[in-house]
Design a protein around this nucleic acid. Structure first.
Lengths: 143, 143
DNA sequence: GTCGTTTTGACATTGAATTTCGTTGATACC
DNA sequence: GGTATCAACGAAATTCAATGTCAAAACGAC
């Protein structure tokens, strides 16, 4: 499988866009960071490596990464959009503790299968889905 | 079953809040409107009946209705929060056409059951969930 | 090098949602 | 009735994430 960097370069070339040091740095930082970063958080992190970078560039690049399928926007209903690297990773959904924010990645074959079936029943071809489960984790329940 | 109006009054009384003509009007309008209204749309609708009403009141009342469980906030990822009456209605999720915006309400016992099971496996008590399926409907696929 | 295009960073702007604040209005108590 | 209390109101200001604007800089093609 191609590296994310190569995949991104190819996507950019395909759209007549260019790979730049800023875009490279943002992608690197995103991959290293891993999971569930907001644009603001990523901006702070990127700025440590290159203080001259602007946050508009971070927003713009995240949009590109999102369009190219390398990262996926998440919506935990706390007002900010978060992102996670999705390239080469299996799809998964999220189980979130409403108290401490703990975030568990879940994947369930039965549900995935039913989703396809439901879409088909209604004549839809399914492109994607979002599923978030909200509850209280065992740690928080103890208190 | 209690009427929504009564249920709302009781909720307000319980929180040491009061039923007011504005809150009553907003609830009425919400119930009559039915499905998937944004705060702005609801504000416009309410304003026709009572032009003196302010949109802060609509936001505030929607929050109250949401907290009381009478309406449910929806997130179709288009930047605005929409609401639908949920009191006395069975829970359901949404199947959305990405092209024409068609919105089908779905309910699947298998999925609901699995969601509970998954939460339990991870030690969570499930409070709520959101599931959105995105695809293309048969009408749009023909074109 | 020069031209044309894209990208960038600083800054301004948008737009949904919330907060502030002075006023209004209802309720309770005398 | 009078008035003190306190929530609720409307208008306007404010917040904050996200996007748009624009001149300058970087890059590639020639």
């Amino acid at each position: 499988m191609k590296s994310p960097q190569v995949a991104f370069s190819e996507y950019l070339a395909n759209e007549n866009l260019k790979m730049t040091p800023q875009r490279r740095l943002i992608l690197e930082t995103m991959l290293k960071q891993g999971d569930h970063v907001s644009s603001e958080e990523l901006y702070a992190r990127v700025k440590k490596k290159d203080p001259s970078i602007g946050q508009a560039t971070v927003y713009r690049t995240l949009k590109l990464l999102s369009d190219s399928g390398l990262v996926e926007p998440l919506d935990f209903a706390d007002g900010v959009t978060r992102y996670e690297p999705s390239y080469g990773k299996e799809h998964h959904d999220h189980l979130i503790c409403e108290k401490c924010g703990k975030n568990i990645e879940i994947l369930d074959a039965i549900i995935e299968h039913r989703q396809e079936a439901i879409a088909k029943e209604h004549g839809f071809t399914l492109n994607s889905h979002k599923m978030y489960l909200y509850g209280i984790c065992s740690d928080c329940r103890k208190e």
